[in-house]
Design a protein around this nucleic acid. Structure first.
Length: 1163
RNA sequence: GCUCAAGUGGCGGAAUUGGUAGACGCGCCGGAUUCAAAAUCCGGUUCUUCGGAGUGCGGGUUCGAUUCCCGCCUUGAGUACCA
């Protein structure tokens, strides 16, 4: 009987499907699995692309499948599901090109994937399949989004809580005491103020606290793809998919407040068994730095503003950088008020409204009519002229409101006609606003520079400050003398693209602002510079520069001749470090401080503690932790993604009630943005939410506009869709209870399966999927929706399988003219005139031979007749000048010995039809091989379908594992598969040693016993078990080979050996194992047969073949009984003739004997 | 620059607590079978001047180092002026 793998594999794949062999059982219907431990093995589900699978894709699936099958043999209730991450860009790009609905192409692609996966024999429980693009799935993605919207992060309880709690707090005590994660620019308000806000205002404020929120953010806009990209979707400044340019753009977007979880995402890494490099990547991405925030008051101001500042509240300056220019104008305006202004001032000046107002006051670069500085309320009275400058006014209002001022406007007519009404409005606004006096007590000047530093201990080494050129203070503090220089510098840096700044880190540039800040302790003035090595986006966009302790500060100081003060008394210098004098000393240990006032003699740790206490006493700083992790943009201007369950009323987002979910993706005519630049959903004819009571519908704009507003809810639906990572951030929970229509998964299922025990996938998801999904899991955990806050206990990254490309060498040559006189433009001997010529790789190495072969060819081949005649004219050099090009040949034309199938290659493309080939002496044509990424364009893609047809799925599975360690990158070379295929044939023969290769396994042990065979078996049991548990799948394939080689040698036919061997092999090569298992007489699948037990007693040896070393070098071996004691061993070794031969009369100094291991003779 | 991972025959790789370096497989060489080829089977295969040498390089610890320590080089991945 032959090993007919195609037949066997089809048979068992059908059996598994028909019998639902791998269906995992959920409580309460556990059946025979009652009491069995659970085990959840998960693969990162694939995006079903149109190209189908290549041999690199199933690598991780094979590994996880082996593990899952192994755990079943070990008696676990195993959950091993699979599904599809089926929303995404490629299907949509394809839809744009072809007009085909992405749902259709996705469905097609999934069919291909499923067929390919099935033929490899995975033990997936397909009854639990999920697809992120399926409405029954994304219903729950939308539901989770709503939960995020309805939550805020309470820093006191350190978890997400319901937004209704926050509203209660606001209503009873305002937001002053709330310790929440929120936007940076939050205004403070009292309970009274909150209750007085209209609902739009309240919603605006709440958005600043919600875990998913709408905000104008600077995003990575990719014009070619027409969408926003996340940071991890951009590689080297271009889009990861397609390599299109990406620009920065401001847009209103949904964001996820992942920053709230920064610390917990960092801490959680300690509790999970993920690869160290992956954890390190996540740590980097989170970017925690611990230090202090320090406040440096500004000492000097440009002329004019100094005065303005010293008027009443020293240091509290509201004017902008140009104050000294505008001040005169303000005075003039005060003296000449309009009629309306005068009337209103009359009312305001006497504190009739219980608030102090100023008239014609400087705020930034504007002169405002009236301002209450304490409440930051601006009152403007507009004359006729303002009708013609509405836009300018709007801009002015925006700038002022960005600085937390509230601007209210009245017309002259209002003021003059209804002054009571105007005053009432002002009074109402005043009562809504919190007093600045209560919240903000300026230390020695409210205007100063706040910096974040990780080295507060070095504060006495500060010799200058550096601001990012974009820093908002720059325009305000620059002195008139420095203005031109500063502005020129800002302009120059703004022009430099992101790429330039990245590429050119070395050039030092900056400018002095002319301003000085005050050192918190020495009270000395410190010059304030700007420099583009300080990033606006990190920390506060300003640094205290300590040249002796930071190399960039040092370089900057040297470049601009700023004094450098050394504060390090170095006690233990690391060899490569500077002393602080000639190079920055950046270590945190090996020194005590000097020249540092009260910090003298202290170490980094002591000084840091002390200086923070002192800063707090001064009110000029406190300990602070910074994270680099930014909130994640959650909107995509695409069609093929989850729609948001959101509609808008008065520009404010409203969540649709969960009972109306899913909000299904609407049909659109085309998948491109609309003419007005809206996302593709803007093309939907019906995309308005219309709801009365429990009845709801999605309708057209006309229908909505014509509907009765009485009791109506609804509005325009959100046009963006969710990003690719939305659906993949929680799918592992859905597999536990995939068909549940009432919950995303039942409590019972979640509590039973809890978390993923083994998760396998690529490391390219380190900062995308793997971070976001941890964030969502922690959020769901906070809300009591899942039982654990880390969803994957162990994670392994499988390495990529690379392709082994084949290159043919295209030979080109020129015979040169001997005489320049003969030279004409068109050289008749150039090879372009003749048949394309290819030369075997090995010949290239021998240039002389190649030349000879070439000339022989020209002389003998009729295709080169014209050329031959030319050469014989005698005008040319006899030796040609040779050069060549490499061209990819399809790897399927090349065999294991790198020989090209010339006929196949010729027929591949028209241009190769007439090619001539210079072959090796043996007539073969060799290609050059090189390892590259597996890709269509390199013609090195190997399709698993082909392998399964030629060698079978079991061979494919074994070979993928055999290639090398799972985590490692390794090249695929189809040639090598004959090794494992041969092994399977040999295995088959081991069970078919009967007549005519018939099945033959004996039940009774042979008379001479099973000694050797048992040793082989148990050695293999031990090895395979250890290997699987250590995820070292490559080595167990080797041990199977060794076992089969040995058993074949032993002519073993015993069932006692051959039956357990099949169970060992079954996780790796399940089809052949099932087949032989059934031939052994079993009616049931092998899949749950108990894993054989290992007995060490079978491996006990009576003698040991000792390696005998001389000075650590093994020279010969000596078989000695195991029970010899060291003395007996020494005697036996010393008596041996080879020992004497090695020693050549010398007397050994020492003899090391480790019984059972080695003998080493020294001397 | 920083962080992490890795460097072993012609190739993929093995050597799990420091103890016979190169298991297993590919390829190559030789043989058997065959009219012949493929397929299959058997044997050999780190280099070598036959003394030895040898796990990227240079040191060190040890009776003994691919394994531990120090310094360096190369490759790959991540990150990028992060204060």
């Amino acid at each position: 009987m032959k090993y007919n793998f195609n037949e066997i594999e089809a048979k068992w794949q059908k059996y598994w499907a028909d019998n639902q062999t791998f269906k995992a059982k959920n409580p309460p219907l556990l059946g025979e699995m009652e009491g069995a431990p659970k085990f959840y093995v998960l693969d990162m589900f694939p995006y079903p692309s149109g190209a189908g699978l290549h041999v690199g894709h199933p690598l991780g699936y094979i590994a996880s499948d082996i593990y899952a099958r192994y755990k079943r043999h070990k008696g676990f209730n195993v959950l091993h599901p699979q599904g599809y991450d089926s929303f995404g860009l490629p299907a949509e790009q394809y839809a744009i090109q072809t007009g085909q609905h992405p749902a259709l192409t996705t469905e097609e692609n999934i069919k291909t994937y499923r067929r390919q996966l099935d033929q490899i024999g995975f033990s997936f429980d397909w009854s639990r399949e999920v697809r992120t693009s399926d409405p029954s799935y994304y219903k729950w993605t939308q539901w989770i989004f709503i939960q995020l919207f309805n939550s805020w992060y309470n820093k006191d309880s350190n978890k997400a809580e319901d937004i209704s709690e926050l509203i209660k707090i606001f209503a009873s005590e305002g937001n002053l005491k709330v310790n929440a994660v929120c936007d940076d620019t939050i205004e403070s308000f009292s309970a009274e103020a909150w209750n007085a806000f209209d609902t739009v205002k309240q919603q605006q404020i709440l958005l600043q606290y919600r875990l998913t929120y709408l905000a104008e953010t600077e995003v990575n806009w990719c014009p070619a793809l027409g969408t926003v990209l996340a940071n991890d979707e951009i590689v080297n400044g271009v889009s990861e998919r397609g390599g299109h340019p990406v620009i920065r753009k401001k847009m209103t977007q949904w964001s996820m407040r992942i920053s709230a979880y920064a610390e917990r995402l960092l801490q959680g890494l300690e509790t999970i068994d993920w690869t160290e490099s992956l954890k390190e990547t996540q740590r980097n991405w989170i970017g925690k730095s611990v230090g202090a925030s320090v406040f440096f008051p500004i000492l000097s101001f440009p002329k004019g503003e100094e005065k303005a500042g010293s008027e009443k509240r020293p240091g509290y300056l509201t004017g902008g950088n140009n104050s000294h220019l505008i001040l005169e104008r303000a005075k003039e305006m005060r003296a000449n008020p309009t009629l309306a202004e005068a009337a209103l001032w009359e009312q305001l000046r006497n504190k009739n409204l219980d608030a102090k107002f100023r008239q014609q006051h400087l705020i930034e670069d504007y002169i405002v009519d009236f301002v209450c500085l304490d409440k930051k309320l601006i009152v403007e009275v507009d004359g006729k002229i303002h009708d013609s400058q509405i836009e300018e006014d709007a801009k002015r209002t925006e700038i002022l409101e960005n600085n937390y001022y509230k601007v209210i406007r009245f017309t002259n007519d209002e003021v003059l006609g209804n002054i009571e009404g105007v005053l009432k409005t002002i009074q109402e606004e005043l009562s809504k606003r919190a007093s600045v006096k209560n919240t903000q007590v300026p230390p020695s000047g409210a205007r100063g520079i706040e910096v974040f530093t990780t080295r507060p201990d070095t504060i006495f080494g500060v010799s200058f400050m550096t601001l990012a050129p974009e820093h908002e203070l720059v325009s305000q503090i620059t002195s008139p003398a420095q203005k031109a220089e500063v502005e020129a510098y800002i302009e120059a840096t703004a022009k430099r693209s992101e790429r330039d700044r990245m590429a050119d880190v070395k050039t030092i540039s900056g400018a002095f602002t002319g301003a000085y800040a005050e050192h918190p302790f020495t009270k000395e003035p410190i010059p304030v510079w700007i420099g583009d090595y300080v990033l606006a986006g990190y920390g506060t966009g300003a640094v205290m520069s300590v040249p002796c302790g930071d190399q960039r500060d040092y370089d900057f100081a040297k470049h601009f001749n700023i004094p450098i003060l050394n504060i390090f008394s170095i006690t233990n210098p690391p060899p490569s470090e500077g002393s602080g004098e000639d190079k920055a000393f950046t270590e945190k240990s090996g020194f005590v401080l000097m020249n540092s006032g009260f910090l003298n003699g202290l170490s980094y740790k002591e000084a840091t503690q002390k200086v923070i206490i002192e800063l707090e006493k001064l009110g000029q700083g406190q300990g602070k932790t910074n994270y680099r992790l930014r909130d994640a943009v959650f909107s995509r201007q695409r069609y093929w993604g989850e729609p948001f369950p959101v509609y808008y009323v008065d520009g404010m987002p409203q969540m649709i009630d969960a009972k109306h979910l899913p909000i299904k993706l609407p049909e659109v005519e085309k998948y491109l943005p609309t003419e007005t630049g809206e996302p593709p959903l803007g093309n939907a004819k019906k995309w308005y939410w219309l709801q009365y009571g429990d009845k709801a519908d999605i309708v057209s704009k006309e229908e909505f506009d014509n509907s009765s507003p009485l009791g109506r809810l609804g509005g325009a639906l959100e046009l963006n869709t969710m990003p690719g990572w939305a659906g993949s951030s929680w799918y592992f929970n859905r597999y536990m209870d995939e068909h549940n229509e009432n919950e995303f998964a039942s409590k019972e299922a979640l509590n039973y399966w809890k978390d993923v025990d083994l998760y396998i996938g690529g490391s390219e998801h380190a900062t995308g999927h793997l971070l976001y999904s941890r964030f969502w899991q922690k959020f769901l955990f906070d809300k009591g929706l899942v039982p654990v806050d880390e969803y994957a206990k162990k994670l392994i990254n499988q390495g990529m399988i690379l392709g082994t490309s084949a290159f043919v060498k295209n030979l080109n040559f020129v015979f040169k003219y001997k005489s320049e006189e003969d030279l004409i433009e068109d050289t008749p001997t150039a090879s372009v005139y003749f048949a394309p010529l290819y030369v075997s790789n090995n010949i290239l190495k021998d240039k002389e031979r190649l030349e000879k072969l070439l000339i022989d060819l020209i002389n003998s081949n009729s295709k080169f007749k014209t050329l031959k005649n030319y050469i014989q004219s005698g005008k040319f050099e006899t030796e040609p000048e040779i050069f060549f090009y490499e061209k990819h040949a399809d790897v399927s034309f090349v065999n294991a010995s790198d020989e090209l199938n010339i006929e196949a290659f010729k027929n591949w493309r028209e241009e190769y039809k007439n090619a001539e080939f210079i072959c090796e002496e043996d007539g073969t044509f060799r290609v050059k091989r090189e390892v590259e990424k597996m890709s269509k364009s390199k013609y090195n893609v190997v399709n698993p379908d082909q392998i399964c047809v030629e060698y079978g799925a079991d061979s494919l599975r074994l070979y993928e594992m055999f290639l090398g360690p799972l985590e490692q990158y390794k090249p695929w070379n189809t040639a090598g598969i004959t090794g494992v295929h041969g092994f399977l044939k040999k295995l088959w023969r081991l069970y078919h040693q009967g007549e005519n290769e018939s099945f033959y396994v004996t039940s009774s042990p042979p008379s001479e016993g099973l000694g050797e065979a048992l040793k082989t078996l148990h050695k293999t049991i031990k090895k395979v078990q250890e290997d699987i548990e250590n995820f070292s799948f490559n080595t167990s394939v080797s041990s199977f080979m060794i076992a089969v080689n040995e058993l074949t040698e032993q002519k073993c036919t015993s069932k006692e050996i051959l039956e357990p061997l099949l169970i060992l092999l079954s996780p790796y090569a399940p089809h052949i194992a099932e087949e032989l298992w059934s031939q052994l007489g079993h009616a049931e699948s092998i899949s749950t047969a108990p894993f054989p037990k290992f007995y060490a007693s079978h491996l006990v040896e009576s003698s040991k073949n000792y390696p005998i070393s001389f000075n650590g070098k093994m020279r010969f071996t000596l078989e000695l009984p195991m029970d010899f004691n060291p003395q007996q061993i020494e005697e036996a070794v010393m008596a041996h003739e080879k020992t004497q031969e090695q020693l050549q009369g010398r007397v050994p100094k020492k003899v090391i004997i480790v019984p059972g291991k080695i003998v080493n003779i020294v001397g």
